[in-house]
């Protein structure tokens, strides 16, 4: 068996586990009671986070830009979906509109920012995030202000009500797989290959006729659209939204998780999101069940993990894994990374 077929077999196996593991299989005569509802919800949150992280990964890991606005796009999608579904529009329409609106805002935001100087996109997105957060908080007539929007319905799709946690999890899983496939297709298309060329050597790529600015702009807009789509899934998942998850802090955490996972790799966002969501969940359980760990707050552990990982393996967990399993291969996929600041000459 080649590595490639082995890979697809394993991928299929993972998918099968992800589909079946949370479910109660005792009805099929198997000794497996499935996951509890709260654990299923943690998995759903992981998937939604991973979708947004995929978008960040496209922007940061492939197009070499920085975005500090992913939480704001998540918010745009979440609010639009909440408003549309509560007004009676079907979820599918809200979902697509969320992606589209985020895409358009991404273009409007990225166009002037990328015109100036490469790393200024980071600054503009930072300002945008704070501004979006203020709009979510203050435009009470639209967003419900600080009290948020309640009772966001979970959709009924193909006759299935997605209200039960497990059904909504499967739905989120299906969307995640679909969006991951779209992302893989983007990256494998000639268009996506241009990114790889860009990342490896921008000047050479440009001389080969790659229009750097257009590609970068599109990458930013698509990455932002992933944020909007994740938001569209987040609103019915939580059934309630308010401005706090869409602030600057969470935007920084998205950037963090992509780098922790391994930017510029397709598995990176999933791993980064898993570390962020599952680590927090497990640590909090440990913290609350054992007084000895009372001060072991999730953020402390996460911060130390990030610092140690960056010091020893800036390519993230995927990079670390590559280093362990294949020491003879090219050691670093991407050490240069995007440049937040220009190195002075």
């Amino acid at each position: 068996m080649t590595m490639k077929t082995l890979g697809s077999v394993l991928l299929t196996a993972i998918l099968a586990v992800l589909i079946l593991a949370p479910a109660d299989l005792t009805g099929l005569g198997l000794p497996w009671g499935g996951f509890r509802r709260s654990d299923i919800d943690v998995l759903t949150l992981w998937l939604i986070t991973a979708i947004a992280a995929m978008g960040v990964n496209l922007i940061v890991g492939y197009a070499g830009q920085e975005t500090l606005a992913q939480a704001a796009f998540l918010g745009i999608g979440a609010y639009l979906t909440a408003l549309m579904t509560k007004a009676g529009y079907p979820f599918v329409a809200a979902f697509l509109a969320s992606g589209l609106l985020s895409f358009v805002v991404g273009i409007l935001l990225g166009f002037p920012a990328l015109r100036v100087q490469k790393h200024y996109l980071a600054f503009v997105t930072l300002a945008f995030t704070v501004f979006a957060w203020l709009v979510f908080r203050n435009e009470e007539w639209l967003t419900g202000g600080v009290t948020g929007i309640q009772n966001i319905p979970r959709p009924t799709l193909f006759g299935f009500r997605s209200k039960p946690a497990l059904v909504y999890y499967w739905f989120a899983l299906a969307m995640t797989v679909a969006l991951a496939l779209v992302m893989a297709w983007i990256l494998r298309s000639p268009w996506g290959r241009a990114f790889t060329a860009l990342r490896e050597n921008a000047i050479r790529a440009e001389s080969l006729g790659v229009d750097v600015r257009t590609y970068t702009l599109l990458a930013f807009a698509i990455g932002s659209a992933y944020g909007g789509l994740a938001g569209a899934l987040y609103a019915p998942f939580v059934e309630f939204i308010d401005p706090s998850p869409f602030a600057l802090g969470p935007s920084l955490l998205f950037l963090l998780m992509v780098v922790v996972g391994g930017m510029g790799t397709q598995a990176g966002p999933f791993i980064g999101a898993a570390v962020a969501v599952l680590l927090q969940n497990r640590l909090e359980i440990l913290q609350s069940s054992n007084p000895a760990f009372a001060h072991l707050s999730y953020l402390l552990v996460y911060a130390i993990l990030v610092m140690v990982l960056m010091a020893f393996c800036p390519t993230g967990i995927v990079g670390l894994w590559q280093r362990i399993t294949a020491p003879r291969r090219r050691p670093h996929a991407d050490d240069k990374g995007p440049i937040l600041g220009q190195v002075k000459s």
């Binding site: 697809s8 196996a13 992800l18 509890r36 654990d39 967990i317 995927v318 894994w321």
Partner: peptide, 28 residues
């Protein structure tokens, strides 16, 4: 893609829940 496997498994195993003692009542 191969490398994804072990992470997913680790993450999955992490979700197995432990049995709780019932001699005390927990209030979350």
């Amino acid at each position: 893609m191969l490398r994804t496997v072990s992470f997913a498994l680790v993450a999955g195993l992490g979700l197995a829940t432990s049995a709780m003692a019932q001699d005390t009542i927990k209030i979350p």
